[in-house]
Design a protein around this nucleic acid. Structure first.
Lengths: 140, 140
DNA sequence: TGGTAATTTTACTTTCTGGTTATTTAACCG
DNA sequence: CGGTTAAATAACCAGAAAGTAAAATTACCA
């Protein structure tokens, strides 16, 4: 997965990991305390912590038999900066997401209904505006 | 992966996908045009687009045999909001990330050096502050 | 009607992820 | 010393991701 930003986003793409970061906002703590709210074994949490650590989102110390974890949010700054560039785009086409979610919901209930088989009615309608530069030359 | 936020972050955790979003900032375009900069086949790009679509980050139309893609940044808003909560944490412990990166770099070069075998000197040093509530009772 | 272009789908492979149980390491404590 | 506690590691597994090549779909065009 190579680059730093990808590692950061990948680390955030898990609700357990985000919850762990949330917990760490209120102060450094031990692994078992972090694990407690979750319905999973310690090694699983340990792996999540390793992912967070490799992303630089947490730092770990050692205090006798405990390995306290503390939050380090700086990689989030980089992520936030990346997202910032898109700020001027949310706001226009605002409801496209909602339409998307609606469609998802429909698709879901449709898939729950057997025998429907996805009617072939998906034609045109959206995107009548401009053709995307057909560029006849350069078949490549 | 279930939840919406995880889906969004997962979609962002790939440089190809982020580049596609970047390209889409300068306007809607066709799949083959999107694919052009990348050293991968069309089906691969098609899959990336599907990931972005399922995350609600792009919308797709149909114009004859083209399926133009357009950017929809609204899910990024949600992601940005989540990250915002951590803003007050970057800034303190600023250099923890840099230390982390340095350690990574060291580990890398160390692993390139055969016969070193990781000297046992990793004790204490960091985290002398407060023990994380040893809580003697409740063995559980 | 047949050809061609754009894109998706299918089928398959490889690698990564998130979880498990069982074992090991490290440090405390009596 | 031996026992207990905190955590990591090892070995394993199922399922998702990311890629490929080849076939199918869809619509234009002569």
């Amino acid at each position: 997965m190579q680059d730093h930003l990808s590692t950061t986003f990948a680390a955030l793409a898990d609700p357990t990991r985000r919850a762990i970061l949330g917990r760490l906002m209120q102060g450094e703590t031990s692994v078992s305390e972090l694990a407690e709210p979750f319905a999973m074994t310690m090694p699983a949490v340990s792996k999540h912590l390793k992912v967070l650590e490799r992303a630089g989102l947490i730092a770990r110390g050692r205090e006798a038999q405990w390995r306290p974890c503390r939050l380090n949010a700086s990689p989030l700054k980089e992520a936030a900066n990346w997202i910032e560039d898109y700020r001027r785009f949310w706001g226009r086409h605002i409801d496209a997401l909602e339409r998307h979610l609606d469609r998802m919901k429909l698709a879901e209930s449709a898939s729950k209904t057997p025998g429907v088989k996805r009617a072939k009615k998906t034609r045109a309608g959206a995107f009548k505006a401009r053709a995307p530069k057909p560029r006849k030359g350069r078949s490549r």
